[in-house]
Design a binder for these strands. Structure first.
Lengths: 346, 346
DNA sequence: CTTGCTTTGAGGTACGTACCTCAAATACAC
DNA sequence: GTGTATTTGAGGTACGTACCTCAAAGCAAG
């Protein structure tokens, strides 16, 4: 049986009240007594029963996820994982709210964040494109005592907050290696399609991608990034243009999340099976393409892990602890048709 | 605030005692009353506070992991993950013991399992090669009321227990696709090296591998499996022999966990960089080979996930619940140098 | 030695749930 | 309607911790 506060009191030769004062850093205890108690804690290996403490304290962790309002299937998957986490974690005194933030409008997003307060919130995970307004509002929120993580995308080089998401540079490098190997020594060009290169994630992915390509696959020439701006017509136009002007495109890297516009345009423009195509995130859309052989690989991050990691990180910060870095690293998953977890085909 | 049992009692128009009887399935409640309470549960969205319940119940989940006594680095990683889980889960009233089982000796393993009882154990995760003796002892244990999962390797087609581990057939298929693509259309032979093909895991991996290779990569000929029996000298002998008799080996699939003997022998026999080599499990050994370019990819399963999944599954069974299948699927990870999680090289 | 202050102890209540006992209420068979 | 069995209610204690109050003990200065 684990030692309780009572055992601790006995071991330290003090009363329960004093133990309580020391544990909760209440005043009115001589340094010498504090030391005696901390010594006893170490000696008998006392660990506070967090459940009981939360129960007594009537503590609830009030967390929120701020996600872009409009979204692709990846965002929907995140929302679903959040809902699942809400269920699972409800019994651990963790309350999770989801809120939509406003994309493409940093001011309104900042306003929304500014409207939050420590009064009704202990921690937030924010998924928003980097912008000074959002950053300022977020910093103020953090200073007001709310735990903050930047989630999936955003200012990940920012030392002010924890970041929960994949290392995008490594993700880009992974795509590079995969594309290079799958291309099998051919000589040719690689098309890169993003939604917008103003997004930090895309920049970092491209960085990691280029690094590998120039170093390891000099036979492949990487073209400048095309930007769809999330519009199907534009995607069609620029991709059509690219294929008309380059006759030896052997691979495509779709940088943008899910990359629906880009992939749709490519399918209409050319035969996807005659080149190597890699895209990000596991959704119904990308899965279908992978299974039918139109996509060669998907680079993904598990939404379930993302959400759970964000929750653990926030909880640790709220409790004044340091998150366990090793556990919170989000894996860069490489998905082929065979390791999607689908039932076997005969 | 979340509704409590008291709120539930009020909402259902019954007393706390009756609510308690319904919640804990104690006898002596009319079906009609049960229904009224369950209706109220749904209506007000009552969720039992698991922490408080565990506290009141003084419940501890006593779990144990039975791993092979002698082991490679993968087993060590499992042990480390178990130790980590022990720390993390201690506050959830989960006690975890690790025990060494005896490999290559089914009788002693079975004896050890037979020595366990529901008296001092609520659940066990067993990692042991399939054998009738072990299976019988395990079945008896399960009938004695101990929750059992077969862990990582073993009798995974066994409906009698839950299985926590990867789908080995899919893992083999994944290796197949990767090897095939990395080989880039070359014509040649693929060497397959196992520790022993009596292990169920290896058989299934080979099955999945062959299926893909014959269907998708007819240019590659897969050779019969070599068996090292875990002995370095034998590995050296059979692998040397293989390379002397086949002049166009373009790829190697090391089926066995970590595959230290096989890989060491290959490194001594031939230039690993001139062929595609894929092995299983992420350990210090395989990581070094991957980073130096001697290995092309590692197919891995996360020891942390394995352990946590086993714990969740056992806990669910002990609580009389069904494990959530979707959450417990262990991912087949594809690791390249770039997504290992190492710090960036400049 | 007294005064005033700090430190400590003893004891209480509370959190939400489990589990127990005993009495009261109700239902049902005859 | 009576007797009996079943169902329900009221109230208690417990789990480990937090937080409160009040009194007792300790200590230092005068």
């Amino acid at each position: 049986m684990r030692p309780t506060t009572k055992d601790l009191a006995k071991a330290a030769g003090v009363s329960l009240a004093t133990v309580d004062r020391v544990l909760n850093e209440r005043p009115g205890v001589r340094p010498k007594t504090v030391e005696a108690v901390t010594e006893a804690i170490a000696r008998i290996g006392f660990v506070r029963n967090q459940s009981a403490a939360n129960l007594a304290r009537q503590k609830v962790y009030r967390l929120a996820f701020l996600l872009p309002e409009n979204g692709d299937q990846f965002r929907d998957a995140l929302t679903a994982s959040i809902a699942e986490a809400r269920q699972t974690l409800a019994s651990d005194a963790i309350q999770i709210a989801t809120q939509a933030a406003l994309p493409n409008d940093p001011h309104r997003t900042a306003d929304l964040i500014a409207g939050l307060s420590a009064e009704d919130l202990d921690g937030v995970a924010i998924m928003a494109p980097a912008s000074p307004q959002v950053r300022d509002a977020t910093l103020r929120l953090a200073q007001a005592g709310v735990a903050v993580v930047s989630f999936v995308s955003g200012q990940q080089n920012d030392v002010a907050f924890d970041f929960v998401g994949i290392d995008n540079r490594a993700a880009g490098a992974t795509v590079g290696r995969l594309l290079g190997r799958f291309a099998g020594g051919q000589t040719g060009k690689i098309l890169v399609v993003a939604e917008t290169m103003t997004a930090l994630d895309s920049v970092e992915r491209r960085l990691g991608f280029d690094q590998i390509m120039t170093r390891e696959f000099p036979n492949l020439t990487v073209l400048p990034s095309l930007e769809t701006h999330g519009r199907e017509d534009r995607a069609q136009k620029i991709i059509g243009h690219a294929y008309r002007h380059h006759n030896n495109i052997v691979g495509v890297y779709v940088i943008a999340t899910e990359g629906r516009q880009a992939l749709s345009a490519i399918l209409k423009t050319t035969d996807p099976k005659r080149q190597v195509i890699v895209a990000h995130e596991h959704t119904g859309f990308t899965e279908r393409l992978l299974v039918t052989g139109c996509l060669d690989a998907i680079i993904a991050q598990s939404t379930g892990h993302l959400v759970r990691s964000a929750v653990r990180t926030l909880k640790a910060r709220i409790d004044g602890q340091e998150p366990i870095a090793s556990q919170e690293r989000i894996r860069i998953e490489i998905l082929l048709r065979e390791n999607l977890g689908l039932p076997h085909q005969s």
